[in-house]
């Protein structure tokens, strides 16, 4: 009962927060927030950091963290951009163009998988704490990105490729559709497969997991590879939406992704958190973001606010953990 209660109460709290933020913004910004255009722009922004948030969440569920997601996204985005710009064939509109696009996307995803694999090896086999392993690879990946581009941006992709970032299907932006599909896939993987179950168990107690016949190494490597893959998917949407890529682009997403995770109820020490909660966190953050945009807050003041919310959520978690610890004691002695 306790487990159920705390799980539901957490989801409920999140839901209430999300709705209240939504209402407050709607009331204070009449005619500006509740417009179709604003909703379209919100839903084209959600996918990028939504996918990156799922990437961070996966690592967090195992009790680790992935600080290299943005660097991974950058590197795979740059590889895709290079292929798109260098491989373009003269006759436009032929199969060659489609082939180039597919090649670019596949290469980007493969690169992101390799990045995740390296993180996984470091964490699972070498035994490096995830914070430092991914901090190191963050430097490494962004370093490679700089070396490849010599620090310059890559601009201008073919029209067809841009459809991924800015096209719509029945008024729904394509990125949103990609994101919904990915989130669904993540829900199924986490809740309905032995792998997902093992991720949660490993995150709550890696030693007991090993003693229960779970192969920690393979689960960790797969998790970080998935984390990388989601970053890779984010990168494709990202470069297609802004029609360019430069090393270091999107570094603000790292803080936002971690913020969304803790806001969405993912336990940074591992073993707890759901995609459902994460999505409520994403929506809350995006609603706030869009409100700030309408109020034309500077990016710097947004930085302050994101940081403050992150810390505030952690402080609230501190007190709620204290409370639930007490209720467990009470239950135990009854």
């Amino acid at each position: 009962m306790l487990g159920k209660y705390s799980k539901y109460s957490k989801t409920l709290t999140l839901f209430i927060i999300m709705i209240s933020v939504f209402m407050v913004i709607s009331i204070f910004l009449p005619g500006k927030f509740l417009t179709i255009r604003n909703f379209q722009s919100m839903s084209s922004q959600i996918p990028e950091f939504g996918l990156l948030s799922i990437a961070v969440m996966l690592a967090m569920l195992t009790g680790g963290i992935d600080l290299s997601i943005v660097a991974t996204a950058n590197l795979s985005g740059i590889v895709a951009a290079l292929i798109l710009t260098k491989f373009t064939f003269s006759q436009i509109g032929g199969y060659e163009e489609l082939f180039t696009i597919i090649l670019a996307i596949t290469s980007a995803l493969i690169i992101s998988l390799i990045c995740g694999f390296l993180n996984g090896i470091l964490v699972a086999y070498v035994g490096v704490p995830a914070i430092l392993a991914t901090l190191g690879t963050m430097g490494l990946f962004s370093g490679i990105a700089i070396i490849i581009t010599k620090g310059y941006g890559i601009v201008g992709f073919s029209e067809k490729f841009l459809l991924i970032g800015s096209g719509t299907i029945f008024l729904i932006p394509v990125p949103m559709i990609i994101f919904i599909l990915c989130a669904l896939a993540a829900v199924i993987i986490l809740n309905k497969t032995t792998f997902g179950f093992s991720v949660y168990m490993l995150g709550s107690n890696p030693i007991a997991a090993r003693f229960s016949g779970i192969s920690n190494e393979s689960i960790l490597i797969k998790t970080y590879m998935m984390s990388g893959l989601f970053a890779g998917l984010a990168s494709i949407i990202m470069i297609s939406r802004v029609n360019s890529i430069r090393p270091g682009y999107g570094s603000v997403y790292l803080l936002q992704a971690i913020l969304v995770c803790v806001l969405g109820g993912v336990d940074p020490s591992g073993g707890a958190g759901s995609i459902f909660g994460l999505i409520m966190g994403i929506i809350t953050l995006q609603v706030l973001q869009s409100g700030f945009n309408i109020l034309s807050f500077s990016p710097f003041s947004k930085k302050v606010i994101w940081g403050l919310i992150l810390i505030l959520v952690m402080i609230i978690n501190f007190y709620s953990a204290k409370l639930s610890q007490k209720s467990i004691k009470r239950l135990k002695t009854n």
């Binding site: 190191g136 690879t137 430097g139 490494l140 990946f141 962004s142 370093g143 700089i146």
Partner: peptide, 11 residues
């Protein structure tokens, strides 16, 4: 190459 080496050193 600086970032690359810094990352490599940490790893």
């Amino acid at each position: 190459w600086q970032n690359f080496f810094v990352g490599l050193i940490i790893i």
